[in-house]
Amino acid sequence: MAANEDLNIDRIANLARLALTPEEKVKFSAQLADVLTNIEKLKQVDVTGVEPTAHAFPVYNVWADDVAQAGLTVEDALRNAPEKRDNMIVVPKVVE
């Protein structure tokens, strides 16, 4: 199975919430197919019994005590908001 055969660009773009132009779709599909072909090489590697590396230096139980600290003021929290009202972020009406 060559990876590029089932690279359904529309499905992926939808998951990524990224609008692509028809030209971008054609271009990206081709470029990604190239990259994926290169990546296919990984299938040659015998990984039997190899643990995946999620962290270069894993340690356990990195946490903080449950002590509340001051956060942002509403002004700072909303300073970069594209649209706000009543100290809340405005978005197009969400239906669900």
Binding site: A64, D66, V67, A68, Q69, A70, G71, L72, V74, A77, L78, D86, N87, M88, I89
Partner: peptide, 27 residues
Amino acid sequence: KTHSKMFTRVAAGYGQPANTLTDPVVL
């Protein structure tokens, strides 16, 4: 029921004015 949030230490709570329990991590 905790004093602070799951992944950052700003206070957790109910019934506070909108967006007063945030910090850079929450946002």
